[in-house]
Design a protein around this nucleic acid. Structure first.
Lengths: 241, 241
DNA sequence: CGACCGATTGATGGAAATCAACCGCTGTGG
DNA sequence: CCACAGCGGTTGATTTCCATCAATCGGTCG
């Protein structure tokens, strides 16, 4: 992946981009430093508070964004109010659906979120100039497809307990990818209600399974939100994965 | 989409490609007639019988393919035997995971299938020459991602009856896309067992819901496999979509 | 302090899984 | 030719897991 990075020195990299993960693991890694500079002129950093909407369900959005920090949830809703979270996105994921207005999905900030936002047109023009950018988008889309299909197995075939364990495992391995691969300690980015919507369960069942995992000593729960996992392998067993 | 077709006349189009849907709606539409000709020299038509495997779960596959006719099911399996169908593919879908060996998915012919198969290397070389080809792959991948997320809502939040109705609606609208948009009549490409694995149910529940829909006069069942839907809108209501 | 919100826990009900019997069809072999 | 085994599918009886309904807890904010 690093082979695609056109820059060797940081000399002509925009200040805001220097520490940005999107330039390494994200889509911006596909750009030359001059392209990065031009895109940077049109980009703005934005802070979005937990709970507010990034992309409306079928409202047209005129910009794309990279997630800098925080967690974004992608939700589908039925007309009678039932809803399902169909994806979680972490830094440095690319946010926004290229080449189509909408697919009945809304994107909301699960936690406080910082994004780097660009006009749609700027990205689409740049795609034409840099095929490598489209390649990165394909890579991310394939990754999201894999994740969606993994989750389909969880939704369709796992028990409530396995679902909750799978969720905790997912968060433990995504919220801080560089951390210890054996144990983990983190703040849950979702409320019980969100977790239920992600797992196709009710909040009561989520709560019961969490206390079950706590009693089985698979996890330690501090403040309803803070979770510690002393042994990730053990958690994976409970998740059947 | 037609704007991308480089050919006006059929004169220099390979015989096998002339009637192929992949050249219109599929990935081959991204190729010039000379590229098509060169790819065609390396491609072979293959017939696969219902039930046999196209891509093993983690075995490396050295070729990609376009589906000419038939239905392919993508399956994920757990170590204890539970399984979930995570996608169905119809003509002229592209088959095979670009840029990665595997993602724990196996592809099996649900019905008898005809494919047009190419060596992996040929496609990957052609992607470098024709960015438009990668664009088509991105389009298809985004479509599959949308479908996967739609299905996540079905798996997580719908009742057994809504799931079965959703499945019938999916088949009715995909098996013959050009047909009457109001009613439908088709052979189910999946067994009851496959349907159960697609819906996250058991075969018994699938069977019960089918008879329920039959008694409610939403569908007519002829030979266990042949289904008629006199009113697709009514079916969509039962599917809550 | 009390209202409110998110979360937990308990009691009960229901939808789907499980267990089991049976149907209709096909192919096979005595 | 018929007996019967095998397979996919249906139907019935029972069980189980999760949803639903309801009460309570703990923390925060006005």
């Amino acid at each position: 992946m690093d082979a695609h990075r056109k820059d060797i020195h940081n000399s002509d990299i925009p200040v805001l981009c220097r520490a940005c993960e999107a330039r390494h693991r994200g889509v911006c890694g596909a750009l030359t430093s001059s392209q990065l500079l031009s895109l940077n002129k049109q980009s703005t950093r934005k802070h979005i508070e937990a709970g507010s909407e990034l992309i409306g369900e079928s409202q047209e959005t005129s910009s794309y964004a990279n997630i800098i920090t925080g967690v974004v949830k992608l939700t589908k809703m039925m007309s009678d109010g039932r809803q399902q979270i169909v994806g979680l996105q972490f830094a440095p994921d690319f946010l926004g659906r290229p080449f189509r207005i909408d697919s009945g999905i809304s994107a909301d900030a699960a936690t406080d979120v910082n994004v780097c936002s660009f006009p749609k047109a700027a990205i689409e023009r740049m795609i034409k100039e840099a095929p490598e950018l489209e390649h990165r988008l394909l890579e991310q889309t394939l990754k999201e497809l894999d994740e969606a299909r993994d989750w389909m197995l969880t939704l369709g075939r796992k028990t409530a307990c396995e679902k909750v364990a799978s969720f905790l495992y997912l968060i433990a391995t995504h919220i801080n990818p560089e951390a210890d691969p054996d144990s983990a300690s983190f703040e849950l980015p979702l409320t019980r209600s969100d977790i239920a919507d992600f797992l196709g369960l009710t909040i009561e069942t989520v709560s019961r399974q969490l206390t079950k995992l706590r009693k089985e000593q698979v996890i330690v729960i501090r403040n309803n939100r803070h979770v510690e996992v002393p042994d990730l392998d053990k958690l994976a067993e409970f998740a059947s994965q």
